[in-house]
Amino acid sequence: MAQIAARLSAPLSVEVHGRRGVGVGTVAAALDAAGVETAACGDVAVVVIAEVLKPEDEALLAELERAGRPVVVVLNKADLAGSGPGGPVATAHRRARRLQELAGVPVVPMIALLAVPAVAALPAPLVSALQLLVAEPADLTSADAFVTGSHRLSVSVRTDLLERLDRFGIAHATLALSRGADVEALPALWRRLSGLDGVQAAIEAAAAPVRYRRLRRALAELRAVGGSAVGRFLAADGTVIAVMAAAVEVVQAAGLAVDPGTGRQAHLCRARQWRRYRDGPVNALHRSCGNDIVRGSLRLAAAGEHR
């Protein structure tokens, strides 16, 4: 029983792929810093791209699809997406939506460089340097201008700031400080700009089939263990509804809507809808999910009737 529970509750991991120069290492470091476990063969594959989907990206996505792997594409370097309406980050979001249609998997923009200081504290000397830049602005028209221009900050400090935040992060940090923001607010600013939360949410959604399969496997192992206590647990309302919830996550991650209604009639309508879905032309995973949604909905309808 302890082994079954350990396998079921083991943390999910991701493997990070991508072409040279798109920031694979930085994305992996940002996810690691945020507490997402990275591995050579993870539960979810993260494919890092920059600007466009290149033929090698498409080949990798096709290979992962053939292997049945959950995939999230990270459109890194969103700060370099161009000067469209709303700025580069808004432009990156629009580009990600277009790329998603081509890739057939979730595409999420990110500035991985800013995700690292968002979750790991920036050294105090660099925070002081940002405060000095508020009082004495430097030339941020280009990286070279920022490093080589005349300024009281040393070249090494300016270089370090560029390597950690790039011009985009420096500019937004100094703007926030100039408007009265506290230094303690900077990590939250960088986190919002980085898109880290969106990437984590996409990974969490992509992992829904992994969690569901783990749960189904654990239930099968429990049935093999047998015993009256195990039988009561497997038949309990809470167990049936927990399995339904995991199945709902799978179909919602695939873009399908599940009626969240709580009345008895809503439960019965949901059961009928997902019985039709289950009996239709769907793959084995979705057939199993449909069956669990039907079972859970009928159990909820019966519970409502007995109240």
Results as ranks from 00 to 15, higher is better:
241 I>K: 00
120 A>M: 12
143 A>H: 11
298 L>H: 05
299 R>F: 00
78 A>P: 01
76 N>Y: 03
15 E>I: 01
164 R>A: 07
286 H>E: 13
174 T>D: 05
30 A>L: 05
214 R>L: 13
239 T>V: 05
42 G>E: 05
249 E>Y: 00
14 V>S: 04
51 E>Q: 10
25 G>S: 09
206 A>Q: 02
3 Q>N: 05
65 E>I: 14
75 L>S: 10
209 P>Y: 11
190 W>H: 00
198 G>T: 00
99 L>R: 04
108 V>G: 06
43 D>I: 00
159 T>V: 05
194 S>N: 05
202 A>N: 03
43 D>A: 05
277 Y>K: 08
251 V>H: 07
79 D>P: 07
230 V>P: 02
239 T>A: 04
259 D>K: 15
77 K>F: 12
17 H>D: 10
282 V>P: 08
112 A>G: 11
252 Q>E: 15
23 G>Q: 09
79 D>V: 00
119 V>K: 09
248 V>F: 11
90 A>M: 10
195 G>P: 00
293 I>M: 09
160 D>T: 13
13 S>D: 09
281 P>F: 01
140 L>G: 03
90 A>I: 02
177 L>S: 03
246 A>Y: 06
85 P>H: 04
180 G>Q: 11
108 V>S: 01
19 R>I: 08
233 F>Y: 15
54 K>G: 10
79 D>R: 04
35 G>I: 08
144 D>M: 10
30 A>S: 06
46 V>H: 07
55 P>R: 02
279 D>M: 02
180 G>D: 14
302 A>I: 10
296 G>H: 02
279 D>L: 15
153 L>T: 10
115 A>L: 12
277 Y>G: 12
28 A>F: 03
89 V>F: 12
84 G>K: 09
141 T>G: 10
165 L>G: 01
141 T>R: 13
244 M>Q: 15
258 V>T: 07
238 G>R: 12
224 A>H: 10
70 P>Y: 01
54 K>H: 12
197 D>S: 14
251 V>I: 14
302 A>P: 02
138 A>R: 01
222 L>N: 11
264 R>P: 15
172 H>F: 09
231 G>S: 13
53 L>E: 01
195 G>L: 06
204 E>N: 11
29 A>H: 11
279 D>F: 10
203 I>G: 13
71 V>Y: 08
262 T>I: 06
221 E>F: 04
274 W>M: 07
289 C>I: 03
6 A>Q: 13
255 G>F: 08
157 V>A: 11
173 A>Q: 04
247 A>N: 14
87 G>K: 09
74 V>R: 07
148 T>Y: 11
6 A>V: 08
88 P>G: 01
165 L>M: 02
188 A>P: 07
254 A>F: 08
47 V>R: 01
99 L>W: 04
52 V>R: 14
95 R>W: 01
127 V>M: 12
104 G>R: 03
260 P>E: 08
200 Q>H: 07
120 A>H: 13
228 S>T: 12
120 A>G: 03
219 L>Q: 11
195 G>S: 08
304 G>V: 03
306 H>Y: 10
281 P>W: 04
164 R>L: 14
110 M>E: 11
39 A>K: 02
51 E>T: 05
196 L>N: 04
261 G>A: 01
9 S>D: 14
181 A>P: 05
139 D>S: 07
13 S>N: 00
205 A>M: 06
21 G>M: 02
288 S>F: 02
107 V>I: 06
76 N>K: 00
41 C>G: 10
216 R>S: 15
65 E>D: 13
